[in-house]
Nucleic acid binder design. Sequence first.
DNA 1: GTGAAAGCGCTAACAG
DNA 2: CTGTTAGCGCTTTCAC
Lengths: 333, 333
Amino acid sequence: MRQVAKLAGVGLKTVSRVINGEPGVTPATARRVTDAARALDYQPDVHAGNLRRSDRRTGTLGLLISSVDNPFAGAVHRAVEDAAAPRGVAVFASSFDDDPNREREAVIAFLRRRVDGLILTTSTASQAYLEPEVRRGTPIVFVDREPSGIDLDAVVSDNAEGAARATAHLLARGHRRLAYLGDRREIQTARERRRGFLEALGRAGIPTGEATVVEELHSERGARDALLRLLDSPDPPTAVFSAQNLITVGAIRALRERGRALDTALVGFDDVDLADLLEPGITVVAQHPEDIGRIAAERVFARLDGDDSPTRRIVVGTTLIERGSGEIPLGSQ
Amino acid sequence: MRQVAKLAGVGLKTVSRVINGEPGVTPATARRVTDAARALDYQPDVHAGNLRRSDRRTGTLGLLISSVDNPFAGAVHRAVEDAAAPRGVAVFASSFDDDPNREREAVIAFLRRRVDGLILTTSTASQAYLEPEVRRGTPIVFVDREPSGIDLDAVVSDNAEGAARATAHLLARGHRRLAYLGDRREIQTARERRRGFLEALGRAGIPTGEATVVEELHSERGARDALLRLLDSPDPPTAVFSAQNLITVGAIRALRERGRALDTALVGFDDVDLADLLEPGITVVAQHPEDIGRIAAERVFARLDGDDSPTRRIVVGTTLIERGSGEIPLGSQ
DNA sequence: GTGAAAGCGCTAACAG
DNA sequence: CTGTTAGCGCTTTCAC
């Protein structure tokens, strides 16, 4: 920047003014500056500026998601990016694969880079470790899963309600022997979905004992194996609620392998690509990651803009999409 | 950091040494410093450090991909992240949706943040605009598409070869009336795939006139509509090569709608989720985004580590995965 | 083994 | 409308 000032024959501050579009510079002077900047291939260094700037904003956001290579997280990421880009804010995304250590490391890496705000999906039991950062004034918004051990904004799907709706959908087709296939219980959303499932059974007056609950599933393979075992048991379920993406796919594979895809009902939580092209189409409770990401970003920016209203928990509804598998009635067997 | 020094009762430089793990500090002194840092919730500011540091590395990478919400790009992103994380390097990812303006803006945003290196998928006709940055010493590696107007490292799939293999696969089943459904011709990979298709026809001695080439497709919907028109024509194709992800899905929809999925052969370029669960399973030429991303990141780091060997073009092979749709022989109609 | 002074590229505050 | 001085948080250099 000093070189630009020298070449343009002006003071350092004048260059700064031109680059930042501040008023108080003659068009002629401004032109000399821009010409000089172009001639020198000058690119301002935002970090140097932020060091002295009063608001100390770096124009960056940290986003922690299960994995950047995951349809749900990718959609959230995209929505965050779309909300951030118009403000000139760039986003760092980190995958943490439900590993608490990677979570902590990623958050530290974000903080050392002085991100303006944080959007987090977490897997630690408590996020109290964020307390100092909150005191420092960094806005933090949780997505997908709610915080624990600390009170912060959160944008989540209505997991229990969605799971209950899926379950009621199956019960309405006459099914009584339901199976629940769920993720690891450490995961808050998994617990919520399980709760919704059990509550729906309760409302229908079905004893919990009649349903089979399988948990701690976290891979397609594991889900497939688990359902295969159930299908091979003497009293197999007539309907299945798979509480997550990969689990749904694993369940489909198991049903196909036993030739039971057309007579066993299936509703999955979270939408699956090409689900409508399968036979039968897969009925799902779809989440709305675009909304979740957008709202989370808006929340961070609102906090950054001074919103100091009480912490909010924003619930984004889910949508039941009927495609066939969930509408198979009892008695098709 | 000054506060830490004061609390620990040591000089500024001693704190700096402890934080950066430099030698020459008594364990006792180091301990006083770390205690003080913890007490004050101190987090070093990497940007401030990099301002003065001799190597001027920010520990960040810029990654430009079609969209963070896109399976192929997501897999590349993940691979880049996995290669970068162990080095303490964070990655900025930007989606540009094949929009040349967004491409330029994103690159400028990266440069102003002084990323150490750039991994780019581009859609501009020429990337000569990167010349000044290259002179400045920023390593730039292209992924997926090759650069033009400038000579830089690139990591790409063997598009022409993969397309030719897919085409030969269809020809081997007796098909002669082939349709090619491709993306916009501005896209370098689209042109390569088209070239592979035509060359395979040529090698089989089939006049180009017998094949139908439809291009400028860039959405599922557009691909579906295009294939519907072909299927409704007096002389519909008996085999289809869809040159991209979304196009493949659109093609499947069109075939289903006309009840031709079981008698018209289909091979897609780039793998599609759940392709094996469809009926028929979709035969594809799969790319290897994990390898592409990993190799690109390794290339950037090698350049950063001083590798000044000539520019390289690294080709990652493709894999033909037979799942049924591509093995439908001529005469099934 | 430790610390003081200078300066990275920029903006704030003020002076002209 | 424009320039000068100080200083952001850190590392470098060099002296103790």
